[in-house]
């Protein structure tokens, strides 16, 4: 149920607005799912999220959703083509299993940000907690601050960028995901190693920094990490690594 117009910065934004203080989550998500192809109204505001879980999940149209406040778990989960911005912080699992589109978090993100994401771009302007990019499968994640422990655990594909540092066991049991960290890495996980930053990686990272709204930072300042590929096929002599 669309409840009205929103006044922001003295401008009247003619954007349909959902007030979660008076509109149910179910109505919000259903409305976002039911936007017909060719619709004119493709920009939406959500106000008073007040930490609600599952805000704007399952979006599968190229719509723009601006969420004014902090959200709980799984905001923009399984996003497929939407551009979702959280003007606040996000709880666990923001943009989990994203297929495509973009999710921006102006504040911090809790655990599992971008978990299992298959595509699209997740940008966290603050810090991301533990297990950022866990089991990532193609998503690109740019974190302006630090990332917590066990980030990119079993990361399969995609790119994880941290302008700050990383916690313990970065990239544990990683497959083919690329990790770029500018700051200090507390420790690397099993089978994760530092790798050479070749020209192709500088190019990929530069593009990611640009898409992630990062200014004044060069790709050359980062260190790349990835899989040593020693654990790809089980061998008993590697048992100590598990």
């Amino acid at each position: 149920m669309i409840v009205g117009l929103l006044f922001i910065s003295s401008e009247i934004l003619l954007m349909p607005t959902f007030d979660l203080a008076s509109t149910s989550l179910r109505d919000l998500n259903r409305a976002l799912h039911q936007i017909p192809d060719g619709a004119n109204d493709l920009n939406f505001n959500v106000i008073n999220p007040r930490g609600s879980h599952s805000v704007a999940v399952g979006v599968d149209k190229p719509i723009v959703v601006e969420i004014h406040g902090s959200v709980g778990y799984y905001c923009a989960g399984m996003n497929n083509g939407g551009i979702v911005t959280v003007h606040g912080s996000a709880g666990p699992g923001v943009a989990e299993n994203m297929m495509s589109g973009s999710v921006f978090v102006e504040g911090d993100a809790s655990q599992y940000a971008g978990a299992t994401g298959r595509g699209g771009l997740l940008v966290v302007k603050g810090n991301a907690a533990s297990r950022c990019g866990i089991s990532m499968k193609g998503i690109d994640i740019v974190v302006h601050g630090d990332i917590g422990h066990m980030s990119a655990f079993m990361g399969q594909s995609g790119n994880l960028v941290a302008l700050g540092g990383a916690g313990d066991a970065l990239g544990d049991s990683i497959y083919e995901a690329r990790l770029f960290v500018r700051g200090k890495v507390k420790s690397l996980g099993s089978d994760c190693v530092e790798k050479e930053m070749r020209r192709e990686h500088i190019k990929i990272l530069s593009k990611l920094l640009e898409r992630g709204g990062v200014k004044g930072v060069k790709a050359e300042e980062f260190t790349r990490y990835g899989s040593a590929r020693k654990l790809y096929n089980f061998h008993i002599d590697n048992a100590e690594a598990y």
Partner: peptide, 10 residues
């Protein structure tokens, strides 16, 4: 919360 998310998506 996960179940709620799956319900909301579907």
């Amino acid at each position: 919360i996960k179940i709620q998310e799956l319900r909301e998506i579907t």
